[in-house]
């Protein structure tokens, strides 16, 4: 990127910095490697060996069981659809609301901001929200997984402050060129906010991908279950206390199945990250004005 002359102290720092980060990467990643390894291991091996990276006997039984359901592909499809659609809706609503709120001269701005902050702390709870969703006729519709959670007020406030920090000179000059508010938002603000948009695309996408609680509440039709709910259901017995386990059930799920579920649920969204990552580095235009 930028050329910088490096002092000896700086070089020492560089070396340590690389080592520290590498260690961090290992510490965070090794348990995941164990999860992957355990998902391919036999039950006996998981019980006998406290920790391993490569199982002695490799079995794909856990994955076969997960993929044995007819609904697996369908649930994946539901999850991808909800994630894509939800992220688009959320981004659209968040960005369009954050921009006006970032304008200090907007009348009523403070009232609106307080209104938003208030909802971060107070909420009506599960039953009243369910009533609203039901009266809107959203039950058993995939929209019930998106609309009630469309804007995260937390994210809204952060996006707002990002917008607020954009150099005003840019907007001023655009306005002199005859741009309307809409024009400024569309042509100046959004293109400048790529890293922010990439960040919140990631945040919203991960949220929608991981969410299953709303599906539990609002979706009765199992054909519309997202993948997380299906996986939850696959290893349900795991959370039941042992002694009180319902006798109608078969054996408790195997440890390897629990691990395989983590892998299946995580890998798709993990693969999504690098595509967004490159946008985090692009802030270019911004500084040229400010500097």
């Amino acid at each position: 990127m930028h050329k910088m002359h490096n002092t000896p102290l700086g070089r020492v720092f560089d070396v340590f910095n690389h080592i520290i980060l590498l260690l961090m990467g290992l510490v965070t990643f090794i348990p995941f490697v164990y999860v992957i390894a355990a998902s391919f291991a036999t039950e006996a091996e998981i019980a006998a060996r406290p920790f391993f990276i490569i199982p002695d006997t490799i079995t794909t039984a856990a994955y076969e069981y997960i993929f044995s359901t007819n609904t697996f592909v369908r649930s994946m499809g539901v999850s991808v659809l909800v994630t894509v659609l939800g992220t688009l809706v959320s981004l659209a609503l968040t960005l369009t609301m954050a921009y006006p709120l970032s304008r200090r001269n907007l009348l009523g701005r403070n009232v609106l901001l307080n209104l938003v902050v208030f909802t971060m702390i107070f909420n009506g709870g599960m039953i009243p929200t369910y009533m609203v969703v039901r009266s809107l006729g959203l039950l058993d519709s995939l929209w019930a997984l998106i609309l009630p959670v469309a804007i995260n007020p937390f994210y809204l406030i952060i996006v707002k402050s990002f917008f607020q920090n954009l150099p005003e000179e840019l907007e001023e000059s655009a306005r002199i060129d005859g741009c309307s508010d809409m024009g400024v938002f569309w042509k100046i603000v959004l293109p400048l906010s790529k890293p922010v948009i990439a960040t919140f695309t990631l945040f919203y996408a991960v949220f929608y991908w991981n969410d299953f609680f709303n599906a539990l509440l609002y979706i009765s039709d199992s054909a519309k279950w997202p993948i997380q709910l299906l996986l939850q259901q696959l290893m349900m017995v795991a959370n039941v206390d042992f002694g009180e386990m319902d006798t109608m059930l078969a054996d408790p799920p195997e440890e390897s199945l629990k691990m395989a579920v983590v892998v299946v649920a995580t890998v798709p969204i993990l693969l999504f990250y690098p595509f967004l990552q490159k946008h985090f580095a692009k802030g270019i235009l911004l500084g040229s004005v400010k500097g």
């Binding site: 039953i127 369910y130 609680f213 539990l216 509440l217 009765s220 939850q232 259901q233 349900m236 959370n239």
Partner: peptide, 19 residues
């Protein structure tokens, strides 16, 4: 028949009562 996942049956029960 409505089948509700066992993991949050209680919540669904309460909501059904409330509805």
């Amino acid at each position: 028949i409505t089948f509700v996942p066992n993991s949050n049956y209680d919540e669904r029960f309460n909501i059904t009562l409330a509805s």
